[in-house]
Amino acid sequence: MIELKNVSKSYYKVKAIDRLSLTVQEGEVLGILGPNGAGKTTLLKMIAGLVQPDNGRISPFFATWPTIAYKPERQLFPNHLRIKSYLEMIAKLSNLNRAQTEKEVTQALAWTGLSDAASKKIKHSSKGMRQRLGLAQLLIGRPQLLLLDEPSNGLDPTGQADIVRRVKQLQAAGRTILISSHQLHEMTEVCTRLIILKNGRIRYQNSMQAALNVTAHVLIHTDKKTANMAAFFAQMHPDISTDGKTVRLGERAFPLRRQMMMQLLRNGYDILRVEHKTATLADIYAEVVR
């Protein structure tokens, strides 16, 4: 659906995006993670056509227009407009006729729970309402690609959960979504694929499911230090390691866990606790950006 080939962008001497290649398929929800200054916003702006790449090519493959809706990180609104008028304006810019405008604006208001506030001026709306209005405008005209830059930035936990719920609904409706966020639990819940940027380059990419499974492991906590068993375990399987009183089995060493525990018991160790851990996105993120 959209393809970036060797795209680079510099601001003065700072490389915001460095020879980045990426393909996003239709219906995918791509999460973009990375530390501040990694190039997330620049990447979204380039796809939105707001920033021109210095090198490389961005090929959007869209069948119909309107194609893109964009929610900036810090979305500001024309405060003098009413909520409904703002959405009607977006509808007109998406070439909807009067009947379609009425229908889509009503649906968008209902979907975001803003129907009762439709006639309210934006300047009198709360932060949460503005965030929801930012989401409502994404729906108008049914654009094929939605670009969300830190959609839950600055919201309380209820507001964040609300955003996650609505992005999931958009995903279920088959929209292609690119979402940049620092909220890792939110990304874990909504994204089907993940990229982690650092210094303008993709340092990690995987499907969310594979990313979380590949680093699953078992931790066996014992009563004594296990250093003297380290050589034996390494011989058993390279994916077994020791750290203080804990033995760690990587995913590939899972079938050996019973045998290993028997070995520990035979050697006089007491097994205090066994933990089956799947990696969190935070673990992956910390590993990549370290």
Partner: peptide
């Protein structure tokens, strides 16, 4: 002003 970003990306031509 940045409040116009959502308007601009909707247009087929700047």
């Amino acid at each position: 002003r940045s409040e116009h970003f959502p308007f601009l990306v909707r247009l087929p031509s700047r």
